[in-house]
Design a protein around this nucleic acid. Structure first.
Lengths: 140, 140
DNA sequence: TATATTTATCGTATTATACGATATAATCTT
DNA sequence: AAGATTATATCGTATAATACGATAAATATA
């Protein structure tokens, strides 16, 4: 029930603080997920994309092709194993992802500026703690 | 730069704590946005959906039709103005939204259980504060 | 050399996205 | 009451997204 409460806060925050011009990029559902994956993980190729999205490798390959055509990601061959491809976000792709998954920096800074130093530290400390535990949770 | 830092924590948390079976629902990008809107706002009709998603009213009407066919939302006529429609999430739709926008309750509870009472309260207090300010930020 | 791995492409099918044009019913205006 | 406005719905049309089987090519491994 604690988790339910936190999810309520979580979804409220995202609903009210997200960027409002999300539809301008015309990014697809799977497109967002691939950009998120590349933002957080290194050495991601077609195989990893397919596994993460739970689709076949040919479907993953097509999604990647479309994202490359939009100049949101970049492809290069691995030097250690030339069968493999290494995908990376472009600066443009990073901006698109930001608009479609992050909190609006302007709104966020506006709120932070209205808080006391203690309150700012409270938020920073709490999210930092939770993010660290979240990263480690995958290893257990 | 404080906002950038918080966004890093924010996206890390979602990346590591989201539900991993998101692809099973096969929900579309716009579908998620409509469910999110209905979850957070009352008295939403086609017009409000169109405005929120920044699409035409006929496009919004079709998206809504598809969500109704999937039994994720429910439609009724307004009693005060019978031209208008009032859309609501079904229980099924609420579950789909949960899997596609919330943090995984199991993972979250597991992490919370590993924290001290003070740390739990820190997280609860911080997210509560931020969510309250986020709600009020739309009125300024 | 044979086999496995990784990626890419083609063919095919279905769903999602979007909008203009048009229609209908309810409400508001004059 | 007649006309204008508003909210929704549907039809037609077009393009993009989604997905996978089949196939192929290149590289790595046994």
């Amino acid at each position: 029930m604690k988790a339910t409460e936190i999810n309520k806060y979580w979804t409220d925050i995202y609903f009210y603080l997200r960027y409002q011009n999300q539809n301008e990029d015309k990014i697809s559902h799977q497109g967002v997920r691939i950009l998120q994956l590349l933002d957080k993980c290194e050495h991601i190729g077609i195989k990893e994309v397919a596994r993460n999205l739970d689709v076949s490798h040919n479907t993953a390959s097509e999604h990647v092709k479309r994202l490359i055509n939009k100049s949101w990601i970049h492809k290069e061959r691995s030097t250690v194993d030339e069968r493999m491809v290494i995908l990376r976000l472009t600066e443009q792709g990073r901006q698109v992802l930001k608009r479609n998954a992050n909190l609006d920096e302007g709104k966020l800074e506006h709120i932070l500026a209205s808080l006391t130093t203690e309150e700012q530290q409270l938020i920073d400390k709490a999210l930092h703690l939770l993010s660290e535990r979240a990263k480690n949770a995958t290893n257990s």
